[in-house]
């Protein structure tokens, strides 16, 4: 269970207050008008936005003081999910080892993930030279390789056309089923994810959020 207990954060003049919980292996869609703090919630979970009070717990363990890397989260941001100047292979290797140096076994894992996400012919290409859809698959396969128990998604497919957005969501659901991942996904298009989501967290104002089943 991912529990966010009376978490209060401040960003400029905005005061955010969140209080919700997500059962393991479920899919929480975070929605609401712009400016309420949907992305800030993910930043707070990741530890980029310091909290004034409250706790973030994963499997009853308090994460409030854990470093970003020590938290159980994989993440896909709205943009800049890949180091565009590096090759696809190097980007993927960083999902397996933070230093990017791989053992033989890890190399095998990387190739397998690349085949699975149909990007094995792109491995030597520079990430910046790929199309939006290809970049999406590379970023997803890196998340797949990271194999974190919770995946945070900050509208990573919003700049893509509806077909690619649908594909992206299919990949996420497949990843959720296979790796038993808990998903927290920020979205402006609730209708698009309603089928996939098990819970919805909807912002009414920056310090008032309602949680309900999808």
């Amino acid at each position: 269970m991912l529990e966010v207990q009376d978490l209060v954060c401040r960003l400029g003049t905005h005061r955010f207050h969140w209080n919700f919980s997500v059962p393991e292996q479920s899919f929480l869609a975070v929605t609401g008008p712009s400016g309420l703090g949907k992305s800030s919630l993910l930043n707070a979970l990741l530890g980029f936005l310091p909290s004034e009070s409250g706790r973030i717990c994963w499997r009853q363990q308090d994460l409030s003081h854990a470093s970003v890397a020590a938290r159980p989260f994989g993440v896909l941001f709205q943009r800049d999910n890949l180091f565009e100047h590096l090759s696809v292979e190097k980007n993927l290797s960083l999902g397996l080892s933070p230093s990017g140096r791989l053992s033989g076994v890890m190399q095998e894992q990387l190739l397998e993930a690349a085949r699975r996400f149909q990007i094995d012919d792109l491995l030597k290409k520079r990430a910046g030279a790929l199309s939006g859809g290809q970049q999406q698959r590379v970023a997803l396969s890196r998340v797949f390789l990271q194999n974190r128990p919770v995946l945070l998604l900050d509208e990573p497919f919003s700049s893509l056309d509806p077909g690619l957005r649908r594909d992206g969501l299919d990949w996420v659901q497949e990843l959720q089923r296979e790796q038993k991942t808990t998903i927290v996904m920020v979205t402006h298009h609730l209708a698009e994810v309603r089928e996939a989501a098990s819970h919805v967290l909807e912002g009414v104002s920056s310090d008032q959020w309602t949680q309900y089943p999808a």
């Binding site: 990741l46 980029f48 470093s67 970003v68 890397a69 020590a70 989260f73 994989g74 993440v75 941001f77 800049d80 999910n81 180091f83 960083l94 999902g95 933070p98 230093s99 990017g100 990271q146």
Partner: peptide, 9 residues
């Protein structure tokens, strides 16, 4: 943010 989330030294 990406480097930190990946725990890159």
């Amino acid at each position: 943010p990406l480097a930190e989330s990946l725990g890159m030294p």
